[in-house]
Write a protein that binds this DNA or RNA. Sequence first.
DNA 1: ATGAAAGCGCTAACAT
DNA 2: ATGTTAGCGCTTTCAT
Lengths: 348, 348
Amino acid sequence: MGPTAEPGPRPSTIQDVAREAGVSRAAVSKVIRNAYGVSEHMRAQVTAAIERLEYRPRVAARAMRGASFTLGFEIPQVGNDFLTMIVDGATEALADTPYQMIIAPLGRDQKGDVAINSLADRQVDGIVAIAPRVDPAWLERVAERTPLVMIGRHDRSDRYDTITGDDRAGAEQVMSHLFDLGHRRIVHLTIHPSRPEPPWAGQAGAEPHVVRTAVYRERMTAAGLEPQVIHTMFDGSEAHAATRALLDSPDRPTAIFAGNDTLAVGVLSAVAEAGLDARDVSVVGYDDVPIARHPLVSLTSVDQSGITLGREAVRLLLERLAGRTESVRYESPAVLRARRSSAEPRQA
Amino acid sequence: MGPTAEPGPRPSTIQDVAREAGVSRAAVSKVIRNAYGVSEHMRAQVTAAIERLEYRPRVAARAMRGASFTLGFEIPQVGNDFLTMIVDGATEALADTPYQMIIAPLGRDQKGDVAINSLADRQVDGIVAIAPRVDPAWLERVAERTPLVMIGRHDRSDRYDTITGDDRAGAEQVMSHLFDLGHRRIVHLTIHPSRPEPPWAGQAGAEPHVVRTAVYRERMTAAGLEPQVIHTMFDGSEAHAATRALLDSPDRPTAIFAGNDTLAVGVLSAVAEAGLDARDVSVVGYDDVPIARHPLVSLTSVDQSGITLGREAVRLLLERLAGRTESVRYESPAVLRARRSSAEPRQA
DNA sequence: ATGAAAGCGCTAACAT
DNA sequence: ATGTTAGCGCTTTCAT
């Protein structure tokens, strides 16, 4: 114990407000919740008392009986630009509602379910989560108690809503684009799949990266070409290293299709450092994050409208909060944005 | 009301666990808090019951009596790479503690105090906030009730801890760097100051951007040059537009010192689009965000170690939680990272 | 339209 | 070492 700092006046409670306004606690509660059955006069009294006492309801106490007016977002990485777009869309959609957003990022070595649990423990009124590898059965259990919207899952549930981009169409466009430019030696670079392969994988639902990889394989095989897939961590530095190795290989690819823009930016840095350009090695990413548009980067990518994804997630959650119980599935279209990072190969 | 989905089994409470283990609620409480006075045998019983019932303590209920084991972070924008670095550092520092992090981003048109309040309402055990323009007197009131660490404030308080980079030294290095290269027509581009000027401004404390701007003015004036300061919004697109205008002006600057990297990246895009390079217009940013290191961007910037800032913030907060009451001030050194975006001007 | 009273799940005294 | 008890601040029946 350090020296006892005088604790300052205890923050006022609903009881204090009731006393100050000369009414009951229940009355104050009704006023702050805009509930039915308060006279104009009482509302004015109470509102004035609230101002005077600078009263703020404790969320914890509210959550124990009613709602917390909080929506929780679980996101795997704070620094990922694509996730940022989603959060921005959500923020916008939340602007004129009484709900506050809190974000639970994953801690080091943490999996998505930990952060989702932590939001549920906090009794948020609803959860939006991006957790492609969490067991759907487990998610359904969560969704029994807390309205849940999952982003980036191709499975379908009766309990929670799902939102995805059209990963199949997006990857198809990437492959067509590269083939049309004349590329044949195309390598696909993506993040490590879960190990061990979860038992529910390979069902109807597959994570976005897996879908993109599958399309890559299909298209390569259909064109009579040998697919080559390289797995890295998600942070781009491994993508950089893997690309260096590829560039030194005897049979250097003329194009690299990266599973997302974070990886693609890492790939581009290795290409640039080697003094090569798009005519030597074309690079295509996925997500169309803001930096892809930058003239110095100019990365060809697939736009699946992260902003819309976030906005829709909130909309669906608010619908559930308003009483909807049937589950909904929303798919955002994918559009290729061709830029200077992809070009016809110098040597066929 | 939609159709009533059967609500699933009510999640178990501490009471259920106590019954299952054949002990009292207090005993369970002690076990989950690792408190003093539990026998090995009881611990085993209780732990087993917890597993069996999949019991998870409700944070709201805990917060009403004891601690919520939650640390709240208020950050002005989710998409800002510098803030991301801070959060990453904090995540790392939190990894082996029982504390969970939640982030309260600002809603649209929201000010920092709203999000800080929302964290306080949630009864987090401590708050880290980045809110350069919030009234220090107000912050002290918050700090009376909730341990508080402010990042990016040059003021000093007896109530809360402050963490900053050495903005004066950083800006000095930028100006020296540009002068050494031979630049004379240097424009400073930064974010809009608060309007109206808050009454507490101009005291010992000033926000980082204001300090950087002040140093710019001092150095320009000392060199017998006319300072030119342009204000924009924080998101880079206005920086882009402002730069275009500058490039078209009869008296085009040979260097632009941007108040942070987000702005600098916007400036760079305008420079690149105009077909110009560092010999025409040099660009320097501040914060040394990851993209600055990218070979295609290669932005000269000032590294104030965002990771360290975040790590220190958590360390200071944990210290306060452990009983410290005297306030602490931490300053991170600033180091210029010269890259290809700055060079000797083609024409003196 | 308003108020009284019960209780949400937990922790912290205080017993024993 | 363990159990009993009294609330924390709020919302929600249920009276009036």
